[in-house]
Every structure is written in structure tokens, then in C-alpha cells.
Design a protein around this nucleic acid. Structure first.
Length: 597
RNA sequence: GGUCCCGUAGCUCAACUGGAUAGAGCAUCUGCCUUCUAAGCAGACGGUUUUGGGUUCGAGUCCCAACGGGAUCACCA
């Protein structure tokens, strides 16, 4: 049982003893005592006054006296207005550190102790390279997957690849016209970049043709919609759907180039997937489901044959599910895919969709439809919505080339890390390979932390000119303090992962040390809270808080140079716990910790 | 226009879901490397939490209204 749960129980018992009142232990509010007051944990007694029939201070006083007299852990108390500040025995904290060190999986729930979850993220289009928006999406989805795993859920990391459709055909048409047979091998260009180049080229040519036709007096709308190159792309899509061998072959070839490029980028990013879904396989899914929904009376058919659902009663609009010509729309596919996944993974308890906030309405409707269709897990689906990353001059537009390319940004981050490391790092003894690895750990760590420390719901602005910080509340700051702790342990001939630590419990430690211990022991609750909200920023901010406390403590508490043997042991153990927590927490964010820097 | 998100120091973000005098980083200024990694530490400066009402012992947090920013409401994907 953790400290606060223990205190809650003690207070509930005290209420029974002092006021003869039955109080639910879980309802008792316990929080960190603010720095300026004496004590470790604070009980908020305002809500208890209705049981005590006394004023808040008198209530607190009575409880405090009883607690000190009856519980060994509580050695002192102080009452400030309606707050009961409790001081706990130092032994309690030292024992807490010992117990945490003994547990190699401190902060993590037993694997498989909760039901299986599918987390979908990334889900790119195969007509252009990954950009900054994908980085936020991927880091978020990957971190949430790790965090759910840490809470005991087996996780299926999945993506659905949008590998078909008119946008894909645009790249293909442009390639046929302008590439002169260019391949990644012939030009040395990364596959996804090559295909993206022709997607941009399509847009240029389309605009040129539109302009030309407007000049010759055509209506602007018609000039745009009927431009020859666009007509050609639409014809190609029809040919694709008809299974035209030549088109399919080109499609496979070009998508193959893109996947090679994506794989390289994912490898750099440090993300991975357990299950891939391809839209070309799933785009026809859902049609039979619509039939079923019609029978259920959940959907209805218009005179022209189109199928709809009316969500007016739920405060939403009518939504199309099948066009009059019988073809499906995105929503149809998504219903089909959702059901498919529950069939693919029979133990699946829920799905988390990591998709930008522009699709909030879509998912609201999707989940509602699943619910109306009587899908058991419908209410446990979650849209992990996140705000868009915008550039100083607005949204990214890949067609116009106004994007921050993922590969470029990763490269720049490692480059910046190199410059800083050469300036003030301790890298002389490292081989070139070790150095390169370090630059990536630090540079990518800075980027991931930058994107994950902000809660998902918030939009964020990214200025490519103003480089991402390596000082202050950043990934490298956390890594640096981890490395320092590791260095100390090395010199003391201790291994971070060893489980036998000797912490003499009679040792005197000061207030700052108690605060650091309290922070370190919070990890399990943090991991749980982060999962409950699907919010990695909770873990990120915890890592920063712990690092800040550790760094400050480190500065004015000698460890290796401490002459009191017992105190030295305690401080080494505390350093190890903090370092482990940081490695655990950052690991959940997909951030590697270096050994030296 | 309807619905949903966001609004906290000059800038970027916190605030344990209603608790004490709202905390960090960046930027600016001042100290600290003959102690374990100075990618650090300590200090200064910086706030009517967009505004106005309400709920109660207590509101950045909940409710109502206004203002500002974003998203969305297609036989698009």
C-alpha cells in the first residue's frame, strides 16, 4: 500500500475513534504539504467537519492528536486552518526507497494484468514523406502504447496505411509523365521523397493547365475540375479499382519505394508497429455491415438508394454511409475496420485512435454508430485527439512544399546535439560510432520531449528558425542528470540495476532529501494517471520535476565524498532510484538515456 | 449559425481533477567550477489566471454570458 492510501485509512480509523463517524477512506483528501509549512503530507479536513460537528481547526487538532498517539509512522502534526499537516517518520521514507530499489519493475504494473488494447497511430498517405505532424502523431501514439503497457495492458500497435485513392494516383500520373523512369536506385533519392516529388509536380502541372484553360476563356471551376491531368488521375483510379494489371504494377512499385522510405524514417524515430492494415484491403469493408444496420433499423435508405444514419436525436447531423451508386465512404470503411479488428483480436477490450483534432466529429459519429449497432466495445473506444502543429505562417501544406520534413528535422537535431557535445560534452574517449549514437539519443530526445511535454489537446507552434532548446525543461537536461547519477554509481562500483542496496534506516536525512524521496516514490501513481488520461505529458512533466529536484539536491549534498558511511549509502541508493525512475519514465516516452554525455 | 477544444508571467508550458501565498523553463540581470559531469546550481525581475456574473467554507479548475484563437458540421479523404 502506498503512503497516501495508508494515511487515508489511518484518518478514516481516527474519524471512527474521535467522532464515531464512518468515513470512506478513499474520499479523504491527502496531498503533498506545501514547502512553506512543516510536515510531509497534508489532510484536507474541511469535508470532515460535518462528521466532527466541530470547526475545521478543532477537527484537525483532534485527528492529529489521535494519529500521533496511535500510528507509529506519524510522529508529529501541525494544524493550519483546515489543513492537518503530518510529519512522517524518516524510517518510513527510507524503507520506501529500499522497497522501490528491490523492485526491478518499480512503477510498472504486472504485464498482462489488464485487458488488451489496440493503439492506432501514424496512418500515413503513401504519396508524400512524413513531416512534423507525423512526428507528433507517432511519438504520441508510441508513448501511449508504452504507457498502457506499463499499466499492464497488452498493446497492439497498429497503423492503417492509406495506400490507395486519388491522391496516390496523382503521384503515379506525374511520375509517368515527368520522371523519365527515375527510381530510387537511379537517382539515389529516398523512395518516399521521390514519390512526394511527383505529387508536388502533379499539383504544379494541374495548376498550369488550369491557368492555361482559364486564359483561353474557360470557367474557372470547370478548368480546374476537367484539367487533362486530373482527368487522367481519375481514370487511373478507375483502372486501379478495375484491377488493371499495368496500373496495379506501377502502384505496387511506387508504394514499395514509399515503404522503404517510411521504414527508414520509423527506424530513426524509434517507433514500430505490430499490425499493419492497408486501405487497399479494407476499403470495401463495411458494406455488409451497412446491410446489417439496415436490418436493425439503425440506418435508413433514401429514395435514390443512398444509406444514412440520423443522429439528430444525439445532437449531431445526418451522416452518409453509402453513396447512391453503392460505393462506400470513409465512415463505412472505418466501421468495417473497427469490427474487423475486434475479430482479429478477440481479447481486444478497446481501441485508441491517435488522430488529429480535425477528425473529432468523425470519431464522435463513428463511436456513436458502433454503439447503436450494439458493438460491445463501442463505448470503450477513444479518440486520442491532438492539436495541430503549425508553422509561424500557419498550417503546413505539403502540396506547396511548406512542410518541416521529418528526416530533415531529425538530422538537424542530431547535428545540433553534435555541436553542443563538441563544445561541452565529455566525448573524447568515445568511438565515432558511440558519438553518433549519443548525438541521436540527445538530439532525438530533445525533439521527442519537446513534442510530448505539451498535453495532446493543445495545438502548438513550431518555428523552424528558432531551434529546439537543449537547456532548461528539455530532454537533454533530464538525460544529463541521469548521466551524472550513473557516473557516481560507476565510481562507487555499483550497478544501477542491482537489487541489493544497503540503506541504514536510522540515518538522519534533511528536508530536501525527504522531498526528493517523496517525488521518487510518486512514479507508480504518475504512470497510472498518465494512462488514465492517455496523456504522456504527465510522465514528461514528472521526469522534469524529479530531475529538477535531483539536480538541486545533487548540488549541495555530497555523495561519494560523504564521510558518514550510512549517509553515503542512503544517498547512493537514492541516486540510483532517481536514475532508474528517469530511465523508466523517459523510456515510456520512447526516449533513450545515454551512459555518458 | 450549431457543436467541440483552447485562452495562465514578454514567449513556451505546469498546477495531483474544487484546497493553503498560482509554479517551472526561455529571455534579461547577479553570484557559484582546487568536491562526485557547469548540458548544472542559487538569486533577482516578471501575474487582476481574457472579461463580467454565479455556485460555496474555498474557484485557474464547476455553471452562465461575452470576447479572442482553432477545429468541425460534404454522395471529400
Amino acid at each position: 500500500m502506498n503512503t497516501d492510501a495508508h494515511i487515508q485509512q489511518l484518518v478514516a480509523d481516527a474519524c471512527l475513534a474521535c467522532f464515531d463517524a464512518q468515513v470512506d477512506a478513499a474520499s479523504i483528501q491527502v496531498q503533498q504539504t506545501r514547502r512553506e509549512f512543516q510536515g510531509d503530507r497534508t489532510v484536507v479536513v474541511f469535508p470532515l467537519t460535518r462528521h466532527s460537528k466541530l470547526a475545521p481547526p478543532a477537527t484537525a487538532e483532534a485527528l492529529g492528536k489521535h494519529l500521533v498517539a496511535s500510528a507509529d509512522v506519524i510522529v508529529d502534526f501541525e494544524v493550519v486552518k483546515g489543513f492537518l499537516n503530518l510529519t512522517l517518520a524518516t524510517v518510513h521514507w527510507l524503507e520506501g526507497v529500499s522497497a522501490a530499489l528491490l523492485d526491478a519493475r518499480f512503477g510498472l504494473a504486472p504485464t498482462g494484468s489488464k485487458p488488451q488494447v489496440l493503439v492506432e497511430y501514424s496512418s500515413p498517405n503513401t504519396n508524400k514523406p512524413l513531416h512534423l505532424g507525423h512526428l507528433r502523431n507517432n511519438f504520441l501514439g508510441y508513448a501511449v502504447s508504452r504507457i498502457l503497457e506499463a499499466n499492464g495492458h497488452p498493446v497492439v500497435k497498429a497503423q492503417i496505411i492509406n495506400d490507395r485513392g486519388i491522391h496516390i494516383c496523382k503521384s503515379m500520373v506525374a511520375w509517368k509523365h515527368f520522371a523519365d523512369g527515375e527510381t530510387p536506385e537511379s537517382s539515389g533519392l529516398k523512395g518516399d521523397k521521390l514519390v512526394g516529388k511527383y505529387y508536388v509536380q502533379f499539383d504544379l502541372e494541374h495548376r498550369r493547365q488550369t491557368e492555361e484553360r482559364v486564359q483561353s476563356g474557360m470557367d474557372a471551376e470547370e478548368a480546374k475540375n476537367e484539367a487533362p491531368i486530373l482527368v487522367e488521375a481519375r481514370d487511373m483510379l478507375k483502372a486501379w479499382e478495375a484491377g488493371d494489371a499495368e496500373v496495379i504494377a506501377l502502384w505496387k512499385t511506387m508504394n514499395g519505394w514509399v515503404y522503404e522510405g517510411f521504414d527508414a524514417t520509423y527506424a530513426e524515430m524509434g517507433v514500430s508497429f505490430d499490425k499493419l492494415y492497408y486501405e487497399s484491403d479494407t476499403y470495401l469493408l463495411g458494406k455488409s455491415v451497412v446491410e446489417h444496420g439496415l436490418e436493425q433499423g439503425v440506418f435508413y435508405r433514401e429514395e435514390n438508394g443512398s444509406v444514412w444514419i440520423d443522429l439528430g436525436a444525439d445532437g449531431l447531423d445526418k451522416k452518409l454511409l453509402l453513396r447512391a451508386d453503392g460505393t462506400s465512404v470513409y465512415m463505412t470503411q472505418d466501421i468495417g475496420t473497427a469490427i474487423q479488428r475486434f475479430e482479429d483480436f478477440p481479447g481486444l477490450d478497446r481501441q485508441v485512435y491517435t488522430v488529429g483534432n480535425e477528425q473529432e466529429y468523425h470519431f464522435k459519429v463513428l463511436f456513436l454508430i458502433l454503439q447503436k449497432m450494439g458493438i460491445e466495445q463501442a463505448e470503450r473506444n477513444f479518440h486520442l485527439s491532438y492539436g495541430m502543429v503549425e508553422l509561424p505562417d500557419g498550417k503546413m501544406k505539403s502540396r506547396e512544399g511548406r512542410v518541416v520534413d521529418a528526416d530533415d528535422l531529425l538530422h538537424e537535431m542530431a547535428q545540433t546535439a553534435r555541436e553542443i557535445a563538441q563544445d561541452r560534452g565529455r566525448i573524447e574517449s568515445m568511438s565515432a560510432e558511440e558519438q553518433d549514437r549519443l548525438f541521436k539519443q540527445v538530439g532525438y530526445g530533445a525533439l521527442k520531449y519537446f513534442l510530448l511535454k505539451v498535453s495532446p489537446a493543445k495545438g502548438m507552434q513550431f518555428d523552424p528558425e528558432a531551434s529546439i532548446d537543449f537547456l532548461g525543461n528539455t530532454g537533454p537536461f533530464i538525460q544529463f542528470n541521469f548521466v551524472r547519477a550513473l557516473s557516481m554509481l560507476r565510481k562507487a562500483d555499483l550497478d544501477l540495476d542491482q537489487t541489493h542496496w544497503h540503506l541504514p534506516t536510522a540515518t538522519q536525512i534533511d528536508k530536501e532529501e525527504v522531498l526528493l524521496i517523496q517525488k521518487a516514490l510518486e512514479l507508480p501513481e504518475i504512470v497510472a494517471a498518465s494512462a488514465a488520461h492517455y496523456d504522456p505529458s504527465v510522465v514528461a512533466n514528472y521526469c522534469y520535476d524529479l530531475t529538477k529536484a535531483y539536480s538541486s539536491w545533487y548540488n549541495n549534498h555530497p555523495v561519494l565524498n560523504e564521510t558518514d558511511e550510512a549517509l553515503r549509502s542512503v544517498r547512493l541508493g537514492l541516486s540510483a532510484l532517481c536514475a532508474r525512475n528517469l530511465r523508466t519514465g523517459m523510456g515510456l516516452l520512447g526516449i533513450e538515456m545515454p551512459e555518458r554525455m
